[in-house]
């Protein structure tokens, strides 16, 4: 990495963050809602990216964890009158614990069975949301979910709430950045690349598999606690299996195992259908075709294309340097 490349990256990062803060200022209510949704879904997808992209465990239950977080927030803030931060704590602990327990079957068998167990769990969670009326109000849903006060500022209006979501996304991103550079993050990658070798190098693969899955699930819960005050009304429908599949699609489309993959994937999944709305009834169809074409062109997702391009340029630059060095040797007396 050259110094200019590094500065270029930092400048690009600052520009994107500034744009995310300044540009939405004159967005309407709906635009801000969609952008907030993007931030929330990015958090959930980041959790799944940790589980799938870094630790290599396929989960089809991330949507269920978003649901658990959302219901925790909705129930605690409406019926309990508690602040959202308390709900956040409960959601994280709950999702972490359930994720940990759910990870156990994965230890016994090959990894694609975890996908099946989580698929079953996802549907079971949906049934509980729908049928346990005493807790979740069933199909009638929970309405009038309050938005929180953050350090004295009310976030009832769309713009402050968007900043609240963006701030949460920033915090989660920083935590994730730190996590994947920590020894834990390295152990997760070792687990993905070759579990047997990781084991022989002294990594407790059992514990790290469970850990990756539980942390990813907890982030789903975090996204859920933001989702409930965002929509201010929740019912079981958004948390069925298709949300889990959507989140998985976001991670793969963005580029699984890349830090910024979930950001792009959530952008495609949340914003692209909105941009295609002018085609009316066709927009989801076009979205599906776009996803398929992208995956045919680059199965490693959008960042996979970039990665390939950069790798090619690097090899070209290296071979050019080699050629220069060689010609110098030849012309030397």
């Amino acid at each position: 990495m050259t110094a200019t490349g590094k500065y270029l990256r930092i400048a690009l990062g600052i520009a994107v963050i500034a744009a995310l803060i300044i540009v939405p200022m004159n967005f309407n209510r709906y635009g801000l809602y969609i952008l907030s949704q993007w931030a929330v879904m990015t958090i959930a997808a980041m959790g799944l990216n940790l589980t799938l992209g870094y630790a290599g465990q396929v989960s089809l239950a991330q949507g269920a964890f978003v649901g658990i977080g959302a219901y925790a927030a909705a129930i605690m803030t409406t019926q309990g009158g508690m602040p959202l931060i308390a709900a956040l704590g409960v959601a994280i602990v709950l999702c972490f614990a359930i994720g940990w327990i759910l990870g156990y079957p994965a230890l016994r068998v090959q990894h694609h069975y975890l996908a099946f167990v989580t698929l079953a769990f996802s549907t079971l969670a949906f049934l509980v949301f729908r049928n346990e009326d005493w807790l979740t109000k069933g199909i009638y849903g929970i309405s009038n979910i309050p938005r929180p006060n953050v350090m004295g500022f009310a976030t009832n209006r769309p713009l402050p709430f968007y900043y609240f979501c963006l701030g949460s996304l920033a915090l989660v991103s920083l935590a994730m950045w730190w996590l994947i550079r920590s020894p834990w993050g390295r152990a997760f990658v070792a687990l993905r690349e070759n579990p047997v070798r990781a084991l022989s190098l002294g990594i407790d693969t059992r514990r790290y598999t469970l850990m990756a899955f539980a942390i990813g699930s907890a982030l789903g819960g975090v996204a859920g606690t933001l989702y409930a005050p965002l929509t201010q009304y929740i019912d079981p429908v958004p948390f069925n299996l298709s949300l889990s599949l959507d989140l998985l699609m976001m991670v793969i489309v963005g580029g699984s195992g890349f830090f910024f993959g979930p950001f792009l994937g959530a952008m495609i999944a949340v914003l692209l259908p909105e941009w295609l709305r002018f085609t009316q009834g066709y927009y989801l169809m076009l979205y599906a075709v776009a996803v398929m074409l992208l995956l045919i062109y680059s199965p490693t997702g959008i960042l996979g294309i970039l990665d390939r391009y950069l790798a090619e340029r690097r090899t070209k630059a290296a071979s050019a340097l080699r050629a220069v060095a060689k010609s110098r040797l030849e012309t030397a007396p």
């Binding site: 396929v58 694609h112 599949l245 998985l248 699609m249 793969i252 489309v253 699984s256 009834g281 066709y282 989801l284 169809m285 979205y287 599906a288 075709v289 996803v291 398929m292 995956l295 045919i296 199965p299 490693t300």
Partner: peptide, 28 residues
């Protein structure tokens, strides 16, 4: 055929997209 050599997961995701596309096409 175009996706098979890239492993199980991208193809599985592509079939999820296909499912969405088929549902929407029939609906439309």
């Amino acid at each position: 055929d175009p996706m098979l050599r890239h492993g199980v997961l991208p193809l599985a995701i592509a079939t999820m997209a296909l499912a969405i596309g088929m549902k929407e096409a029939v609906k439309q």
